[in-house]
């Protein structure tokens, strides 16, 4: 049972992060390699709001979440927007530069010491015992819940929301979308905002569960195979990809050798790239555009 819980928690972490890669890739074909940094920034935003609003922890959390949405939008409006019309590679390299910048900035502002936003907010992290004697902490459980909620909401939004449809439309054909009067910059900014928001949600919950330090960047990178395995332009794919990678990783830790844990996601990825390079749910045609 504990095995299943461990898989679900890890899958949730990967899925929450991976959907950020997918959102941005889907609308703009840009691989956001600063996603790990943006997610970490989100978690540090919680540290910032928590130190300012330690009396009203819920407000601090909500404010941090709102800020992450704004930050993502700002990243597009002030940086990535200038890259539209340039080669995709140039835009991807811009995100790499952004990542380096953010890492430095975070270090300057918050230093490299580990932080514990949960203690700052004065919250506990009780552990629940599930049937089968599996245990799960509150925030690990919230990670699973958030993943379900975020994916459900994103699905409904993209399916039925007018702006969600516009995001899909702009992803398919930005020129036609523009010709129909859709403000591309608004759509892209929204995608960046949502992507940062979901990443930051993951970052904050991980930080609340087990603390925050600068290694969080690498967690963002580890979620990348999940997005690729599922197919970079498919949300459902990201979810399934996250489950596959998490199951493989936890299984290997449990039954084979914990040393391989780091390699497994990339191993699965390589197998996938050989067998089906566009991912489980990705569209084949999308691959040509990369």
């Amino acid at each position: 049972m504990q095995l299943v819980v461990n898989i679900l928690v890890l899958a949730s972490i990967y899925a929450l992060i991976a959907c950020g890669y997918v959102l941005i890739y889907r609308v703009s074909r840009v691989l956001n390699l600063a996603h790990g940094e943006l997610m970490m920034l989100g978690a540090y935003l919680l540290v910032a709001t928590a130190s300012g609003l330690s009396n009203s922890p819920v407000a601090a959390l909500l404010l941090a979440l709102a800020l992450s949405l704004v930050v993502g939008g700002m990243v597009y409006l002030f940086l990535m927007r200038r890259m539209t019309g340039e080669m995709v590679l140039a835009a991807v390299l811009t995100t790499v530069a952004l990542g380096i910048l953010l890492r430095g900035l975070i270090l300057l502002i918050w230093s490299a010491s580990p932080r514990h936003p949960r203690d700052m907010l004065g919250w506990e992290n009780p552990v629940f015992t599930l049937p089968g004697d599996a245990r799960i902490s509150l925030y690990a459980g919230l990670l699973i819940v958030s993943t379900v909620v975020v994916y459900g909401a994103l699905f409904l939004f993209l399916r039925f929301g007018r702006w969600g449809m516009r995001m899909r439309a702009a992803g398919q054909n930005p020129l036609l979308a523009a010709q129909r009067g859709i403000r591309l910059h608004a759509v892209f900014a929204l995608a960046w905002g949502l992507s940062t928001f979901t990443g930051a949600t993951a970052g904050m919950l991980i930080a609340l569960d087990s603390g925050l330090d600068s290694t969080m960047v690498m967690i963002g990178l580890k979620a990348f195979p999940a997005a690729l395995v599922g197919g970079l332009d498919s949300l459902a794919g990201a979810l399934i990809g996250a489950l596959i990678i998490a199951a493989a990783e936890v299984g290997v830790i449990r039954f084979i050798d914990p040393l391989l844990a780091d390699v497994v996601p990339f191993l699965v990825l390589i197998v996938m790239l050989v067998v089906r390079p566009w991912g489980l749910f990705g569209t084949r045609e999308e691959l040509d555009r990369v």
Binding site: Q2, L3, V5, N6, V9, L10, I13, Y14, A140, I206, S210, T215, M216, V217, M218, I219, L221, K222, A223, E249, V250, I253, R254, P258, L259, A261, D262
Partner: peptide
């Protein structure tokens, strides 16, 4: 003997062992 990778998103699988 659990050897964790430098960045582990969740240490529970190792701890479980």
């Amino acid at each position: 003997k659990e050897i964790t990778p430098p960045p582990a998103p969740d240490y529970s699988p190792f701890a479980s062992n």
